[in-house]
């Protein structure tokens, strides 16, 4: 009666390197990368809030850093990552309902989120510079 059960060799899904690159795949990878970047980007948010709570000198240091070229580049990347991850998240929430998986729909969705994140980032920075100009 006591028979040993041999583990079944189950097929594994091939790794992503086997597939031809597709925009849906790149957007999936971009979603994870932007999420990981935003994770560490929270350090900037924490620094900004702590500086504001500490006093004018600490806050001036944050404002100085954000005004440098490196600071601006990090902020620009942070803006795009945040908007891209947000729109990508909305796309995933749509997919969670089982909708939007058709060949044309999924392509349309990834294009819309990529186009949307780039457009929104540029618009936001134009608005940002207008606000910055008005406050001086």
């Amino acid at each position: 009666m006591a028979e040993t059960r041999v583990p079944v060799e189950r097929p594994l899904s091939p790794h992503w390197t086997i597939y031809h690159p597709a925009l849906t795949m790149l957007m999936s990878i971009a979603h994870r990368i932007t999420g990981g970047a935003l994770y560490f980007g929270t350090l900037l948010v924490a620094w900004w809030l702590i500086a504001a709570a500490t006093g004018p000198n600490g806050y001036a240091a944050v404002q100085w850093f954000m005004g440098t070229l490196i600071g601006r580049l990090i902020l620009f990347g942070h803006t795009w990552a945040l908007l891209h991850h947000m729109l990508g998240g909305v796309r995933h929430l749509i997919w969670d309902t089982g909708r939007g998986f058709g060949p044309t729909e999924r392509e349309w969705l990834v294009r819309a989120t990529l186009f949307g994140s780039i457009t929104l980032t540029v618009v936001l920075w134009v608005v940002g510079y207008l606000v910055l100009g008005a406050s001086r």
Binding site: G55, Y59, Q63, V131, S135
Partner: peptide, 10 residues
């Protein structure tokens, strides 16, 4: 964040 751009600490 956009509303606070360039504003002073106070």
């Amino acid at each position: 964040v956009v509303a606070l751009l360039g504003r002073n600490h106070g």
